[in-house]
Amino acid sequence: MYRHLLVPIDGTDLATETVSNAVEFARTLGARITFFHAQPNHAAAFGGEAEIVRLTSPADFAYAYQGRARELLAKAESAARALGVPCDSSTAVSDSPYRAIIAAAQDAGCDLIYMASHGRRSSIGMMLGSQTLKVLVNAGMPVLVAATSSPPATSQAIGIIRDEHRSLAAVLHAWLHLLESDGSPAEGSRDELMRAMVHYIKAFPVALHHPKEEDYLFRKLRERTSQCNAELDELERQHERDLQLVDELAKAVDRHAAGEVDLATVKEAVSRYALFIWEHMGREEGVILPAAQRYLTPADWDEINAAFSENSDPRFGRDTDAEFKRLFSRIVNLAPSPAKQ
C-alpha cells in the first residue's frame, strides 16, 4: 500500500478541499505527505504583470509572488498535524508545473501523487486539466486524481472555516518553533515578530472569525435544532475565554520585551493557548460542522458562505482580507520553518 504521498497544491479555492481529502486519505493508509507548490518563474517574465506589480506595489508583490507559497504550505501542514499525519513540504520555481511535480515526487521518494484537476471532463469521464493530464502521462508512478469541481455553498463555507482554522494553527506552530529554535532571531526581532503574532490573533480569529461563527453558523444551527445548544453554549464561552488568554499572551510578550520575565514564561503561555485553541477547533470541526451539514438548508449555507467569503458583516471593512493575508504571510515567512515530522 502507498506510504508516501506527494500532494501538489495551488492558490485556488479547491486547494483547501484537496488538502482535506488528501490528509484523510493518508490517515486511513497510515502514510505521510509531502506537500508541494510550484511557483511561476516571474523573473523570466521581466516587463510582464509580475514586474509591473513589483514596481507599483511592492507589498502586493511580496505577498502574491513571494510569500504566498509559504502560506499555502504552512496551512497544509497544519491540516496534516491536526489529524496526526506526518508531513513535509517543498516548493520550486518552474514554468512547467507538471515537470516540477514529477521531480518533487521523485526527489522525496513518494510512491503516489495525489492531485486535483481543475479542467474539463475528458472522453474517459475524468476531470483532467492540462497539467494533470501531463502528470498522468509522464509520472512513471501511480497518480490519484481527486474529483473536486465547482463545490456547492456547503463545501465552500466549510472549506473557508477550515482554512481560517489552519491559518491560526500555522501561526501558533510558527510561534512555538520560534521559541524552540536554536537559530531564533535576536531578542528585539523576536519580540517584534511575537507582537505581530498577537496582533494577528486578536484581530483575525478573536475579532473577525469568532463573531462570524456566532452570528451566522451558530445562529443558523440554533434555529434548525436544539440538539447542539449545549455544545454551542460551551463554544461561545470558549470564545470569551479566548479573549482572556490572548490578553495574557500580549502581557507576557510585553513583559518579556521589558525584561521582566524570561522566554520560558512566554513559551508556557503560548503552549497553553495553543492546546486550548486546538481543542476548540477540533470540537467545531468534529461536532458542529457535521451537525450543520445534517440540519442546515441550502439557503442557510448560501448565507453562511457569503458571510465568510465576503466579510459581509458591516463591522469589517473591505480591506480586511488583504490586511490579514499580508500579516499572515509575513509571520510564516519570517518565523523559522517548523521541524519536519
Results as ranks from 00 to 15, higher is better:
Ala38Phe: 09
Ser94Phe: 00
Ser329Glu: 00
Phe36Tyr: 13
Gln244Ser: 12
Val19Ile: 15
Arg162Tyr: 02
Val135Leu: 02
Glu180Lys: 12
Asp247Pro: 05
Leu133Ile: 09
Glu236Tyr: 07
Ile201Gln: 10
Leu334Ser: 11
Thr132Phe: 04
Pro97Arg: 08
Ala79His: 05
Ala306His: 09
Phe25Val: 05
Ser189Pro: 06
Ser149Tyr: 14
Ser312Lys: 07
Ser189Ile: 04
Glu260Leu: 15
Asn138Met: 08
Asp321Ser: 05
Thr132Ser: 12
Asp247Glu: 14
Asn138Glu: 11
Ser312Pro: 03
Leu178Ile: 01
Lys267Gly: 13
Ser20Lys: 12
Ser155Tyr: 06
Thr12Val: 09
Gln106Arg: 13
Ile158Gly: 05
Ala153Gln: 03
His4Tyr: 11
Asp215Glu: 14
His177Ala: 02
Glu214Ile: 11
Glu24Ala: 14
Gly11Arg: 14
Gln341Thr: 12
Lys134Ala: 13
Ala76Arg: 04
Asp242Pro: 07
Gln66Cys: 09
Arg70Gln: 12
Thr16Ala: 14
His239Gly: 02
Gly317Arg: 06
Glu310Leu: 15
Phe61Glu: 08
Trp301Ile: 12
Leu245Met: 13
Glu214Pro: 02
Gly317Cys: 01
Tyr200Asn: 07
His173Leu: 13
Leu5Gln: 01
Tyr200Leu: 06
Ser271Leu: 15
Ala79Tyr: 03
Leu73Tyr: 10
Ile201Asp: 10
Ala146Thr: 03
Ser155Cys: 09
Glu285Ile: 02
Ile160Cys: 07
Arg241Trp: 10
Leu72Val: 02
Arg272Cys: 15
Ala252Met: 07
Leu176Asn: 15
Ala26Met: 06
Tyr295Ala: 13
Gly183Arg: 08
Trp175His: 00
Pro338Ala: 03
Tyr200Phe: 15
Thr297Glu: 03
Arg27Asp: 06
Ala274Cys: 12
Ser184Leu: 06
Ala186Cys: 05
Ala80His: 05
Arg219Ser: 13
Leu179Gln: 00
Arg255Tyr: 12
Ile288Leu: 07
Met141Glu: 05
Ser20Thr: 11
Asp163Trp: 04
His4Val: 13
Gln293His: 07
Ser312Phe: 00
Gln227Ala: 14
Thr148Trp: 00
Pro40Gln: 09
Ser181Trp: 05
Pro336His: 03
Phe204His: 04
Ser130Glu: 10
Arg81Phe: 06
Met194Asp: 00
Asp107His: 11
Tyr114Ile: 05
Leu6Thr: 09
Ser184Glu: 06
Ser271Gln: 15
Leu5Glu: 09
Phe218Thr: 00
Asp321Val: 08
Pro40Val: 08
Val198Trp: 08
Glu248Ile: 06
Met141Val: 00
Ser181Asp: 14
Phe61Ile: 02
Pro142Leu: 01
Glu187Thr: 08
Ser150Leu: 10
Gly159His: 02
Thr297Pro: 04
Phe35Gln: 09
Glu213Tyr: 03
His173Lys: 10
Phe324Gly: 02
Pro8Met: 01
Pro8Phe: 00
Ser337Gly: 06
His173Pro: 01
Val253Ala: 07
Val261Gln: 10
Lys202Gly: 01
Leu208His: 08
Thr18Val: 11
Ala264Thr: 13
Pro314Met: 08
Ala196Pro: 02
Glu248Phe: 00
Cys110Ala: 15
